[in-house]
């Protein structure tokens, strides 16, 4: 299944974008349809509303946002049990930058991760059929892999921040950053 990933700055502008498509056995690229390609940044922008909402909630009450992925337990938490980005005082789990599935749009699922500096890492997960906007098959997200992907991207991002030539909020144009992100995507998302 294809993904569209973006790092969104404080003013809602994307500072980095990438689309990952799958390479299947017959070497056929299955990316997003042209229609969705034109729409993806707007879909992400729309879901920022919900990310903002979750960010400021101590305990998200709306079950709509919880992740239904029930594979395994323990570290595989769902948001409702841990509190949002602002930690609940009863939960000691510090690893809650990952918000899980925050939104959906006609078969596409949207996951998000917030850095401590308030940058938003957001990703649209398309269906393997990469159908149009009316496709109703919802994507199943592997939370563990997704979280690991985001965490490594976070690390990469912090390394970029440490670059004296980089100013926070500017678009990241480094090809090294891009190739690392893509290899992480291959590692975690399109196994």
């Amino acid at each position: 299944m294809p993904q569209y990933f973006a790092i969104i700055g404080h003013k809602g502008n994307p500072i980095y974008e990438a689309e990952f498509s799958i390479q299947q056995g017959n070497q056929k690229n299955l990316g997003f349809s042209q229609e969705l390609k034109e729409m993806n940044p707007f879909i992400l922008h729309a879901s920022l509303d919900i990310i903002d909402d979750l960010q400021w909630q101590a305990v998200p009450s709306n079950s709509q946002y919880t992740n239904d992925n029930s594979s395994g337990s323990g570290s595989n938490f769902s948001i409702s049990s841990t509190g949002g980005f602002l930690r609940s005082k009863n939960v000691n789990n510090t690893d809650n930058c990952y918000l899980g599935k925050v939104d959906h749009f006609y078969g596409l699922a949207i996951t998000a991760y917030i850095s401590y500096g308030g940058m938003k890492f957001v990703m649209i997960h398309g269906t393997s059929t990469s159908g149009g906007s009316n496709s109703t098959n919802t994507v199943v997200i592997d939370d563990n892999a997704c979280r690991s992907f985001y965490q490594e991207i976070h690390e990469l991002y912090i390394k970029t921040l440490m670059n004296p030539f980089y100013k926070t909020g500017d678009p990241i144009s480094s090809p090294v950053f891009d190739s690392r992100v893509r290899s992480l995507a291959r590692k975690y998302l399109n196994k």
Partner: peptide, 16 residues
């Protein structure tokens, strides 16, 4: 108002 409105969603659906 951060997180307490859905203006961006509204704009997206209007665009659609």
């Amino acid at each position: 108002a951060q997180g307490l409105t859905r203006k961006r969603k509204a704009a997206f659906f209007r665009l659609l």
